[in-house]
Amino acid sequence: MIPVEHYVLLSSLLFVIGSVGFLVRRNVLVTLMSIEVMLNAANLALVAFNRSRLRHAVEQAAPGPSHTGQVFAFFVIAAEAAEVAVGLAIVLSLYRLRRTVRSDEADLLKN
């Protein structure tokens, strides 16, 4: 069995990649993809912990099979889907309005 540290390491790596992408890229589509990467990093951590350590603690409190992490991950996936739908609609509107998908050119609210 692969130790949980590996999963966590991978998850952290993905999260850092996502957050750096979110902070430095100017293309709104890429920004959205970065958010997806961060969320999936969190999902990975959730299911990995459910398999190992936390499962131990939960079973002490309430014995029996536990799928809290997995269920949580499904909720995150559902939220992700909604977020992408809204996000892409905003990107389309932005493109129609400004003929651009670069976030630093969308500064109508400046000052």
Binding site: L23, R26, S103, D104, L108, L109, K110, N111
Partner: peptide, 12 residues
């Protein structure tokens, strides 16, 4: 008002 740059990345 000077902080209200309108750039999403700065807010992030």
């Amino acid at each position: 008002r000077a902080f209200q740059s309108g750039v999403v990345h700065v807010y992030a």
